[in-house]
Write a protein that binds this DNA or RNA. Sequence first.
DNA 1: TTATAAAAAACGAACGTTCATTTTCTTTCT
DNA 2: AGAAAGAAAATGAACGTTCGTTTTTTATAA
Lengths: 221, 221
Amino acid sequence: MPKLSDAAIEKRKETIEDAARELFIKQGFHATSMRDIAKGAGVSLGNLYNYYETKDAIFESIINRYLGVIDEKLKDIFARIDEPLEPENLRRMGGMVGRLVNEHSDFWLLMYIDVLEFQNQHFRKMFDGISARFGKIFAEKFKDAEKRGDLRTGVEAAPVFTAAYMQFFNYFLVEKLFGGNHHLGLTDDQALNCLTKIFAYGTLSESKMASFKKRASKGLA
Amino acid sequence: MPKLSDAAIEKRKETIEDAARELFIKQGFHATSMRDIAKGAGVSLGNLYNYYETKDAIFESIINRYLGVIDEKLKDIFARIDEPLEPENLRRMGGMVGRLVNEHSDFWLLMYIDVLEFQNQHFRKMFDGISARFGKIFAEKFKDAEKRGDLRTGVEAAPVFTAAYMQFFNYFLVEKLFGGNHHLGLTDDQALNCLTKIFAYGTLSESKMASFKKRASKGLA
DNA sequence: TTATAAAAAACGAACGTTCATTTTCTTTCT
DNA sequence: AGAAAGAAAATGAACGTTCGTTTTTTATAA
């Protein structure tokens, strides 16, 4: 047989990793055998080792691939937010984060596998210094907002925005993975509204809130 | 040999479960063998089966025991909070939640094991309808606060209190287990203050906030 | 002696990994 | 065009371990 093209190898690896991911998520890493993965991918047991050195390497490859996907999705979300402290944008972000969590709940399960089995080696960077990263992404916007006096005195933009992001994120994680069952006692929509309101009133200056309320009463809502 | 006393059996089970818990947390459930547990507890392999039917049963026993402990600690925390919507009390709760998370981080790891390996069977009740439970615990307090007009119009006490609790909880979890590394860009103290302020300004009526600020300026802080 | 706890040995099944073998497909040669 | 050669891919049996659990044996104290 001639050597497979890089594209062909890549394609095969994807089908293997798709099968492995599904199994890891459904039954955990250690409970999933190489035989399971082989069967799931429609590949022989031995052939797996032509593509990966070890079982761990499969997990790592899955994670690295997925990290890239989620990273893009997050970038996309933040790119769609021009004014990060605007309440309506916070609310929109919450919706997008919710969709991200729900559509990729398997990704967060992989994160828990990583925490338990690999001491969180691969996901460390996910939350490490996240506020500083938001500070960079929205550097001008945050500076502008502070100049304009949009924020209450003593309130910094980056931690507040991060806290809002984390709150949305965690809300949907609890709902999706931990049996929250509407743990705030509200529908998802109501919960998003409630949380957004808290962050809006909690962080914006009174003048900013007033102008926002005026705009809201005239506007869409 | 005569039958062991119930107390003796209980004591032995505790040492076994202590060893098992440590191993489960350090290396995961499936990666921990019955031989590991036996060695860790200073007991023979076969003897484990005089105390537990299966390996799963050990895990379940650990969880049920621990759920009781955490439940008590949480009850204790809420018992120490007479006025749940008072900002200074929210802040105090945050501190207590932080200590709970940090001192019992293994408990939350067990929760992740449960999510991954047991479909969250044992921890379901942890977050299920948590807002309603807070609503019951603080029923009178919430009603009083709403009567007094402590809250902004349209803001319900239970979801807001729950959101605050979850935010504190999640903050420390991320710090402890996910390599947050001061992910809000603040010290823990500053983070607690920041979050408390958001929830205070975000949910309390202006009159209530004014009286609080007056009291704060006169008082300790 | 007798009931029972504890220890040790043994069980079959399943694990991750290896490897000799077979299959597959391109290339080369007639 | 078609057979032979060569190289890489795919296979699945087999390896040595280790797994959870069971069974057997030994030790202990009333």
